[in-house]
Amino acid sequence: MTEPLSAALPAVVELYDYEYAVIRAVPRVERGECVNVGVLLYCRQSAHLAARTHLDQARLLALDPVADVQGVRRALQGIEAVCLGGPHAGPAAADSPGQRFRWLTAPRSAIIQPGPVHTGLTADPDTELRRLFDQLVL
Score class of each variant (00 low, 15 high):
Tyr16Glu: 06
Gly78Ser: 13
His88Tyr: 10
Glu33Met: 12
Pro97Ile: 08
Leu138His: 13
Cys34Tyr: 12
Val22Arg: 08
Arg130Phe: 02
Arg131His: 11
Gly71Tyr: 10
Met1Cys: 08
Leu60Ile: 09
Phe133Pro: 03
Glu128Arg: 14
Pro87Phe: 06
Val72Cys: 09
Ile23His: 05
Ala7Glu: 15
Ala106Phe: 06
Glu30Val: 12
Gly71Phe: 10
Ala62Val: 07
Tyr18Val: 00
Leu55His: 08
Leu138Thr: 13
Asp134Phe: 09
Asp64Ala: 15
Gly86Val: 03
Ser46His: 00
Tyr42Lys: 04
Ser6Gly: 05
Leu55Gly: 09
Glu19Cys: 03
Gly71Leu: 08
Arg131Pro: 00
Arg108Met: 08
Tyr42Glu: 03
Ile23Gln: 12
Thr122Lys: 02
Leu63Lys: 13
Val66Met: 14
Arg52Asp: 11
Val137Glu: 10
Val29Glu: 14
Ile111Gln: 13
Glu19Pro: 02
Pro65Val: 05
Arg24Ala: 11
Leu129Met: 05
Leu9Pro: 04
Gly32Tyr: 11
Pro27Asn: 12
Val22Met: 09
Tyr20Thr: 07
Leu76Phe: 06
Leu41Cys: 04
Arg31Asn: 11
Met1Arg: 09
Glu19Leu: 11
Leu9Val: 11
Pro27Gly: 10
Thr127Tyr: 01
Glu33Asn: 13
Arg73Thr: 12
Val13Cys: 03
Thr105Glu: 07
Ala110Phe: 03
Pro87Lys: 07
Leu104Asp: 06
Trp103Arg: 12
Leu63Ile: 10
Arg131Lys: 08
Asp126Ala: 15
Phe133Leu: 04
Ala11Gln: 15
Asp134Gly: 15
Ala94Pro: 02
Tyr16Leu: 14
Pro65Glu: 15
Asn36Ser: 14
Leu40Glu: 03
Val137Thr: 05
Gln45Phe: 02
Leu49Met: 06
Ala51Lys: 04
Asp134Leu: 14
Tyr20Gly: 04
Tyr16Val: 02
Ser96Cys: 01
Gly98Tyr: 02
Ala81Gln: 09
His88Ile: 00
His54Thr: 01
Leu49Asn: 02
Gln99Tyr: 01
Leu132Ser: 08
Glu80Ala: 13
Leu40Gln: 03
Ala50Pro: 02
Ala21Asp: 05
